[in-house]
Amino acid sequence: KELVLVLYDYQEKSPREVTVKKGDILTLLNSTNKDWWKVEVDDSQGFIPAAYLKKL
């Protein structure tokens, strides 16, 4: 599985998104959309702007 590093805090703005903190390491589930990547946070899944993430 691929991991990503969160570069900036992000507060979810819709139920399909997730809240993350700078420095979090998350599992990347889908990066086919260049603007929004799907990640797994704890036991939930959701989208975060790709610009907030860096592949490890």
Rank of each mutant, 00 (worst) to 15 (best):
K13A: 10
W37H: 02
E12M: 15
T27V: 15
A51P: 07
V20I: 05
P15E: 11
G23M: 03
S44L: 14
Q45A: 13
L28E: 00
D35N: 14
D42K: 14
N30S: 13
D42G: 15
E12Y: 12
S31T: 09
K55P: 08
Y10C: 05
V20L: 05
K55T: 06
S44Y: 14
D35W: 15
T32E: 14
E40C: 14
K55I: 12
L7I: 08
G23R: 02
V39C: 06
N30W: 07
F47P: 03
S14K: 07
K13S: 10
D42H: 13
K34S: 11
S44A: 14
K38P: 01
N33G: 08
P15I: 08
P15G: 11
K54R: 13
T32H: 10
S14H: 11
L3H: 08
V39S: 01
Y8G: 06
K38D: 02
K22S: 07
L7M: 08
G23Y: 04
K22C: 06
D24L: 09
F47R: 03
K13D: 06
Q11D: 12
A51T: 12
D42Q: 13
W36Y: 09
V18E: 01
P15V: 08
E2H: 11
Q11Y: 14
L53D: 01
K38F: 15
Q45T: 13
L26D: 00
V4N: 00
R16H: 12
A50D: 01
S14T: 11
V4I: 04
G23D: 05
L7S: 02
L3A: 05
K38G: 05
R16N: 14
K1R: 14
Y10F: 06
I25L: 06
V6L: 02
I48F: 02
K21F: 10
P15W: 08
N33I: 05
A50N: 03
V18K: 06
T32M: 10
I25H: 03
E40W: 08
V6D: 00
L5K: 05
E17Y: 08
K38L: 15
V39Y: 01
R16C: 15
G23H: 04
V41Y: 09
K22V: 06
E17P: 09
K22P: 02
L56D: 02
D43C: 13
Q45F: 13
L29I: 13
A50T: 05
D42S: 11
Y52G: 05
A51H: 12
W36R: 04
V4Y: 05
L56G: 02
V20Q: 01
L3P: 03
G46I: 15
Y52L: 10
N33K: 06
D9T: 06
E40S: 10
V41D: 05
T19G: 05
L56T: 04
W36T: 03
Y52M: 08
K54G: 04
Q11T: 14
L28F: 02
Y8N: 09
V20T: 04
T32D: 14
K21G: 04
P49M: 05
P15L: 08
N33P: 04
P15Q: 09
A51L: 10
E40Y: 06
E2S: 12
N30K: 06
Y52P: 00
P15M: 08
S14F: 09
L56S: 02
K1F: 12
L3I: 07
P15H: 10
V39G: 01
S31I: 05
N33D: 14
L7E: 01
F47H: 05
T32A: 11
V41A: 10
K1I: 12
V4R: 01
K55L: 13
P49F: 06
V4E: 00
G23N: 05
K34I: 09
K21C: 11
E2V: 14
G23A: 02
N30V: 07
S44T: 14
Y8H: 13
Y52S: 05
I48H: 01
G46P: 08
K55Y: 08
E2N: 11
N30L: 09
K13H: 08
D9W: 05
K38V: 14
A50I: 05
A51Q: 11
K21T: 08
K22F: 05
L28H: 00
I48C: 14
G46L: 15
L26M: 04
K34L: 09
V4C: 10
L56F: 09
T27L: 13
W36G: 02
V41G: 08
V6R: 01
W36C: 09
K21L: 06
Q45H: 11
E2Q: 14
V18L: 15
E2G: 11
K38W: 13
K55Q: 07
L29R: 03
K54D: 05
V20C: 07
L53E: 00
T27K: 13
E40V: 10
T19S: 14
K22W: 04
K22Y: 04
Y52N: 07
P15R: 09
K1E: 08
T27D: 03
T19M: 07
G23E: 02
V6E: 00
E2I: 14
I25N: 01
L7C: 07
K21R: 13
W36N: 02
R16E: 10
P49L: 06
Y10W: 08
E12D: 07
T27S: 08
K55R: 13
S31M: 08
L5F: 07
D35G: 09
S44C: 12
S14D: 10
K1S: 09
V39I: 08
Q45V: 14
V4P: 00
W37Y: 04
E40T: 07
N30P: 03
F47I: 06
D9Q: 04
T32C: 14
V39F: 03
G46S: 08
E12N: 12
L28D: 00
V6K: 01
L26P: 00
D43F: 10
L3G: 02
D24W: 15
N33Q: 09
T32G: 08
L7K: 05
D42P: 07
Q11N: 13
L53I: 05
L5T: 04
W37P: 00
D43L: 09
D9L: 03
P49H: 04
K13P: 05
L56W: 07
N30H: 06
D42R: 14
T27M: 10
K38Y: 15
D35H: 15
E2D: 11
K21W: 09
V39R: 00
V39N: 00
K22M: 07
D43E: 11
E12K: 15
L28K: 00
G46R: 11
L5D: 00
I48T: 03
D24N: 08
L3Y: 15
L56Y: 08
Q45K: 09
A50R: 11
V6I: 04
E40I: 10
D9E: 04
N30D: 15
V41E: 02
F47K: 02
K34Y: 07
L53F: 02
K54Q: 13
A51C: 15
Q45L: 07
D35T: 14
S31D: 14
E17W: 07
N30T: 07
T32I: 08
E2C: 15
V39E: 00
L7T: 04
I25M: 05
K1T: 10
D42W: 09
A50H: 03
E17R: 10
Q45C: 13
D35K: 14
L28I: 04
E2M: 13
K54V: 12
E17N: 10
K54P: 01
Y8T: 07
K21V: 07
Y8P: 00
L7Y: 02
V41F: 12
L28M: 03
T32K: 11
D35S: 12
S44M: 14
Y52Q: 03
N33T: 05
L5E: 09
Q11F: 14
E40F: 06
Y52D: 00
A51G: 10
L53K: 01
K34P: 14
L29M: 06
T19L: 05
K1Y: 13
Y8F: 13
K21Q: 08
L3D: 02
D24A: 13
V6F: 01
W37F: 04
E17T: 10
A51S: 14
K38I: 14
K22G: 05
Y8K: 14
W36L: 05
K55N: 05
G46M: 15
N33A: 07
E12G: 15
Q11I: 14
Q11E: 13
